[in-house]
Design a protein around this nucleic acid. Structure first.
Length: 438
DNA sequence: TCTGGGGTCCTAGGACCC
DNA sequence: TCTGGGGTCCTAGGACCC
């Protein structure tokens, strides 16, 4: 918490819907709902005209249609939203070098790191009204709500108070007075589950929370969460505004209109998603060691499986093969509504040549390198190539001293599957060099 | 036919090493 | 032979945010 109110939070009002109304005059003054338009879609953003009918973000589109059937339902034009976002973020960076975007429509700005020196209410008001006017002008009329306070927490709470098109400055020293009557859900990190636990403990407002000891909260919510809630209930927040945050994972997922039951279709979809993930990794010069899949079953139970490679990859075929291998271990016979692929453990480089000499897939008759003994203990499904009397195949699964090999090649497609003891001398392998991407 | 998509952070248990 | 810690890495799941 700072001495002066020098943290600003800016939030573009009903952002996606406002961009649509800006670009299509016929939608102005009318309910506009942006989000998934299919049977399993949800509302991403809706205009204030739609909110008057009880439509909210994250509500299913089905319910939104029931509440507001005459609204315009739009799938979203993310290129347009991205362009508007870039304009606003660039404008904020003129104000201060320290701008932390939270999403396309929200950012923190550290005013102390900019040129501002007078943090009195009058000066801040003039500054923020000028900023809001410039945002509207630069974006063709988009409005923003702004909050200014002594910390990120207060700035964010403040920007919420007079939406839309509002400005609130919380003066230093008035934080707790403002927070105490508010519901605990104003605290970042308190969602439905935590709010329910607190409710059962008789804690409804920030004032209730403030009366509990740190020990009590840590016991109830865990070390990290308990500690941070104890502090935030006292408006103690010294989190810095951070301009550059490095991505930690890249993922693609999709929910399907009808549950998937055919494993071949699931494999094909995972393969396509892996391609999209790989393309995004490559575009940003990233690669990662951990490949994950996400599977949501018909009953909404959500499973995840992951595997970690010895070195990072951005290869579509490697990611796809590992994803399919992970899927093969799950029982999906009851139907699947969502599939996803992700890569984490990111590095800003690609290990392109792990074994130096191995740069291409060897020909069928090439001499196969001896398997190093350390690799006998650790097979990499989807990555290691194995030669046996059956020919060449991919390691499909490994565990409990047994290696499963799928004799699948690009030419012949999926082939037979055989299992071997991991120490079977017939097996030879080398780390996959990713010939397809060379 | 309730319940998106892209992320972040935390926890807990097990393996493994010193 | 038994009993330990601590630290790190990995996996699975859950809560949360916009």
């Amino acid at each position: 918490m700072r001495q002066e109110a020098s943290v600003l939070h800016l939030d573009l009002d009903a952002f996606y819907a406002s961009v649509e109304q800006r670009d299509k005059p016929s939608l102005r003054g009318k309910p506009v709902i942006v989000g998934g338009t299919g049977g399993r879609g949800v509302v991403a953003t809706c205009s204030y005209e739609a909110r008057a009918f009880g439509v909210r973000s994250a509500m299913s589109t089905r319910e939104a249609r029931a509440r507001c059937p005459h609204a315009a339902f739009l799938g979203g034009r993310f290129a347009a939203y991205g362009e508007a976002s870039r304009i606003v973020m660039a404008l904020l960076r003129e104000v201060s070098p320290l701008v932390e975007p939270l999403s396309l429509d929200e950012a923190f700005v550290d005013l102390a790191a900019g040129g501002l020196t007078d943090f009195g209410v009058d000066a801040l008001t003039a500054f923020a009204e000028d900023l809001r006017a410039r945002v509207a002008e630069a974006t063709g009329g988009l409005t923003a709500s702004v909050g200014i306070g002594t910390s990120k927490f207060m700035a964010k709470v403040a920007s919420d108070l007079q939406k839309p098109d509002g400005l609130v400055i919380v003066e230093p020293g008035r934080e707790q007075q403002l927070l105490r009557p508010m519901a605990v859900k104003v605290i970042p990190g308190v969602g439905p589950a935590t709010a329910e636990r607190l409710r059962r403990a008789g804690i409804h407002t920030v004032a209730d929370l403030e009366q509990r000891s740190e020990e009590e909260l840590v016991i109830e919510l865990g070390q990290s969460h308990g500690h941070s809630l104890w502090r935030l209930a006292r408006a103690l927040d010294d989190r810095p505004v951070i301009a550059e945050r490095e991505a930690k994972s890249v993922s693609v997922e999709g929910t399907y209109e009808e549950d998937l039951t055919d494993p071949r279709v699931m494999e094909a979809l995972l393969t396509r998603q892996a391609g999209n993930v790989a393309a995004r990794l490559a575009r940003h010069g990233l690669s990662g060691r951990t490949i994950s899949i996400k599977v949501r079953l018909h009953d909404f139970t959500t499973l995840s499986r992951s595997t970690t490679l010895p070195s990072p990859t951005d290869s579509a075929t490697t990611i796809a093969r590992l994803a399919r291998t992970l899927l093969a271990d799950l029982d999906t016979s009851g139907g699947v509504r969502l599939l996803g692929v992700g890569v984490s453990g990111l590095a800003d480089w690609v290990q392109d040549d792990l074994f130096g000499a191995v740069a291409d897939a060897p020909a069928e008759d090439a001499e196969i390198p001896e398997v190093p003994s350390r690799m006998r203990a650790q097979w990499w499904p989807g990555q290691d190539v194995v030669h046996t009397a059956m020919g060449r195949g991919w390691v499909w699964g490994a565990g409990r001293g047994v290696v499963t090999v799928r004799f699948e090649t690009a030419e012949t497609g999926p082939g037979p599957v055989r299992s071997y003891r991991a120490d079977d001398p017939e097996l030879s392998a080398w780390q996959r060099p990713d010939p397809a991407e060379a």
